[in-house]
Simulated scan of single mutants.
Amino acid sequence: MAGKFITIEGIEGVGKTTNIEFIKSWLTQQNIEFITTREPGGTELGEQLRELLLHGGDVCSSAELLMMFASRAQHLEQVIKPAIAQNKWVICDRFTDSTYAYQGGGRQLQTHVISQLEQLVHGDFQPDLTLLLDAPVEIGRARAAKRGAADRIEAEDLSFFNRVRDMFLNRAKQAVRFSVIDATQSLDSVQADIQTRLNQLKTEAAQ
């Protein structure tokens, strides 16, 4: 069976962590080899950049964008592409769609600049499936607030996250790899929707 690259996207509080655990359980039941990873992060360099991005001091928007792609370049070279070459499935908590959403939508950086960096770092290499867990910003923020102190990005205001969500939804309209999951449903319903898409992807991988 061919390796596949699945990314999990969405604003804070939509249940990415919980549903990644569900995906891991499903893959284990299907006897599919996999790894899980995250962005920014996934490598020693990436985790160092993650700490700076989420808990560092004053980071300007352009530096933030470049750090995201620096982490991603290392991640792709060291972790993601080698795993797929070994026919493993890669489950990644965030990828380039988050950069468009947070730095493009939230920070209002020009998307053509993000696109140029995307082309430089990974070109035509894209996820096989992107699960976008979607919920209104107010719901996501209320859930996220229960987790404890906010990091540098989580502390942004409501308008920032509305722009982030809008960009995610706009991205989802542009590529068939997206599956938008209503994260306001019951957890069982959310996971039933996810499992449907995973079954489809497994069928494709086996062909």
Rank of each mutant, 00 (worst) to 15 (best):
E12A: 04
P40I: 11
A63P: 10
D128M: 06
L158H: 07
P136S: 07
A183L: 08
E204V: 11
L158G: 00
I153W: 05
W26H: 06
L133C: 04
D188K: 14
V90T: 10
A192N: 08
V59Q: 04
E156Y: 03
S186L: 12
M167N: 10
A150K: 13
Y100T: 00
M67N: 04
I32V: 15
Q200R: 11
E118C: 05
Q116L: 15
L158Y: 01
T28H: 10
G46Q: 12
E118S: 09
S189Y: 03
S159V: 06
T7P: 00
A63V: 08
E21L: 15
L109N: 00
L187F: 01
I153R: 07
N199A: 15
S98W: 13
H75I: 04
E77I: 08
V79E: 14
I8K: 00
L120C: 07
V121M: 09
G13E: 02
A70D: 07
L54S: 14
A172S: 12
E33Y: 06
S62G: 00
K81S: 03
F34K: 02
L169I: 11
G123M: 07
L109A: 02
L109S: 03
Q207P: 05
E138Y: 08
L198H: 13
K146T: 03
E154N: 03
E204D: 07
I194W: 09
D193W: 02
